[in-house]
Every structure is written in C-alpha cells, then in structure tokens.
Simulated scan of single mutants.
Amino acid sequence: MTDEALENSPPRRSRAQLEAWVAEFEEEEHCIAGTITVAPQEDDGGDDTGLVILNPRNATESIFMRPRNYDDPVWEITMSGRPNELVMSVHDIASFAAELVIASNLCTFLQWKSLEWDRESGRRPDRQTA
C-alpha cells in the first residue's frame, strides 16, 4: 500500500486497541467459559492489526472475529472447520450454544467500539444519506 493510500485510508485498529476492548468486554462480567485472545495479524503495511479469537471450552473450533473488509465497519465471525464429526453431550452442546451467544455479543461489542472509534478519530468521512 502506498504512503498516499495509507494517508487516505480509514483508521485501522491496533492489536493493543483490540486488547483494550476485549478487556473492557470481560470487565462487564460476561460469563465466558472459554478464552478470548487477540492474536498478532499484520496488515499490508506491516502494522499489527490483531485478530480476536474466542476458543470455546467444550469444542475444538476457534471463533475468529474481524471487520468484514478493510473499509467496512461491519464485523463478522468465522468458525474454523472440523475434519471430523462433532459429538457432544447435551450439557456440552448447551455450553457451546451459550459460548456462541457470547461470541455474537463480543462481535457486536467490537463493531460498536469500532464505529465509535472511527467517529472519534475524525479520519473516517461521514457518509451522507439520501
């Protein structure tokens, strides 16, 4: 990415920023059985933009959260694939379902924080509505 493109690009959230938002989410006392981490992820310019990962307690899948596209404020969730069938007890599936709700809540929280941060940064132009 050229210097000019970076200057005119929307702000990117750093790994440190995402870690602070995840800590804020966890401080709100969400009941999280698994673990949430922000893994290193470099963008085209070599900056560490981070990748939010929720590892459920009762499943081997990882749930990745990130903005849908570079210039898109909407976040999405990706679940890692499984090579084998997933067999769970009734209690484990209920726990996994609860963790999916937590993942959805976290992804919504990150999207809201991103929109708020974009607005406050002054670097993302306001879009006019018709």
Rank of each mutant, 00 (worst) to 15 (best):
V87K: 00
E24V: 03
F25K: 07
A16F: 09
P10M: 13
E116Y: 07
W21P: 03
I53F: 05
D43T: 07
L18P: 06
Q111S: 12
A20V: 10
G81R: 13
D43P: 12
S62F: 11
R57I: 04
I102V: 15
T78F: 05
R82F: 06
L100D: 00
G50I: 08
V90R: 07
L86F: 00
L54C: 11
I77N: 02
T37Y: 02
N58M: 10
G122M: 08
R15A: 13
E27G: 01
L110I: 05
T37S: 15
A103Q: 00
S80A: 09
I77T: 12
V74G: 01
R15D: 04
F109N: 02
E26A: 07
F96H: 05
T35D: 10
G50F: 05
D126E: 14
D118P: 04
D72T: 12
G50R: 07
R13F: 09
D48N: 14
R127A: 14
V38G: 04
W117K: 09
E99I: 06
E120P: 01
L110N: 01
W75C: 12
Q17C: 07
S62I: 05
R124E: 07
A103G: 03
N55M: 14
L115A: 06
E76K: 15
I63K: 03
S104C: 06
G81E: 08
E7M: 15
G46F: 11
R66A: 13
E61C: 10
A16D: 06
K113S: 06
I32T: 05
D118A: 11
E4V: 14
E27D: 05
T78M: 08
E7K: 15
E19K: 14
C31E: 09
A23H: 01
L100V: 06
I32D: 01
T35N: 12
D126P: 11
A39I: 04
P56M: 08
H91D: 07
E7T: 08
L115E: 12
Q41A: 14
R127T: 14
E61I: 14
R57A: 14
P40G: 01
R123P: 00
